[in-house]
């Protein structure tokens, strides 16, 4: 159905979306790149000229950089581990015949729809508050000293909150993948004498591997830029300053735009590496 007429109509109709996204991508990107080579302190003298790779070197050699990378990796890794392990188990559980499956599904998915600031605040106050939080009550009930979660176990707390938000996503995708598994395959394996555990290892897991890869990639992209959860709970204190948060602080809190922009360039490169893998998978799927 490709005639000259429809092709030119198509180009015309695609133009607005393409131009808008091109502008949205290129203009800020160019500006960030420009700023990253300049000493730019809006509140302390403004733009003070070209400084070469100074900002890049300073950002990477500052005492905050490596800890922030470590924090980022711990949060991303921790959340991925929790959401995928629990997600696989939950997906298998939800795939079993039961009463009220629809309702359970809804219960499990609900956290994904809670806005990040709300879930951070609810966890921070109503669960993790060292005096009135539910966890404090629970600890006291067992005679233990309540934990000051967000300062003593800050990283774990953030991982817990973020995992709670992303578990539904992982579960839902893995469940969708499990449901596409041909049950005859499992029955054939059962006929071949494979016990439950072997069936899981040799049939279910390989079938899920693709979905798991996709969950890892998509979550990584979103988790790298986790912001509201830290903003609301610790404000980056107690070792919860991720790369994203560090850049945010450099740019908006200390108003060192040059330095923050250099960090931004690093973040963009990092995200692009992950995105490249994801795009490859999505691209392959487009051909099918």
């Amino acid at each position: 159905m490709a005639t000259q007429h429809s092709r030119s109509a198509a180009r015309l109709m695609m133009a607005p979306a393409v131009i808008l996204l091109l502008g949205w991508m290129l203009v800020p990107l160019m500006m960030t790149l420009w700023f990253s080579f300049r000493k730019y302190l809006p509140l302390r003298g403004g733009d003070q000229g070209f400084v070469g790779f100074d900002n890049f070197v300073r950002f990477i050699t500052s005492s905050a950089f490596w800890p922030s990378v470590q924090t980022t990796l711990v949060i991303v890794g921790g959340v991925l581990l929790i959401t995928i392990v629990l997600g696989v188990l939950l997906a298998i559980l939800l795939d079993q015949p039961m009463w009220g499956q629809g309702v359970v599904r809804i219960l499990v998915i609900a956290p994904f729809f809670v806005m990040p600031t709300v879930s951070a605040l609810v966890w921070k106050n109503m669960f993790m508050d060292p005096v009135n939080g539910l966890f404090a009550h629970l600890w006291k009930a067992f005679g233990a000293e309540p934990i000051v979660w967000l300062s003593d176990a800050s990283l774990f707390s953030i991982i817990l909150i973020v995992s709670w938000q992303w578990l539904p996503f992982a579960t839902l995708i893995l469940l969708t993948a499990i449901q596409s598994l041909d049950s005859e395959q499992l029955e054939a394996a059962e006929m071949d004498g494979a016990p439950v555990f072997s069936r899981f290892v040799y049939i279910v897991l390989p079938h899920l591997s693709r979905a798991i890869t996709i969950v890892i990639l998509i979550q990584t992209i979103f988790l790298l830029s986790v912001f509201a959860e830290i903003f609301v709970t610790t404000g980056g204190a107690f070792g919860t300053r991720t790369l994203t948060y560090l850049i945010y602080q450099r740019v908006l809190e200390s108003q060192n735009v040059g330095l923050g922009s250099a960090g931004g360039v690093y973040a963009i490169i990092l995200a692009n590496i992950v995105a490249a893998f994801l795009m490859r998978i999505v691209g392959k799927n487009l051909d099918a």
């Binding site: 092709r7 393409v18 500006m31 700023f35 912001f227 931004g264 963009i268 995200a271 795009m279």
Partner: peptide
């Protein structure tokens, strides 16, 4: 009306979604 570039355009659009917001916050 897919053309040879359709797939590339689509993937490119998705890739803009991957851009970390904090990287372009100040601009």
């Amino acid at each position: 009306v897919p053309s040879r570039r359709t797939k590339d355009i689509l993937l490119w659009m998705l890739s803009t979604k991957m851009l970390p917001a904090v990287g372009v916050l100040y601009p």
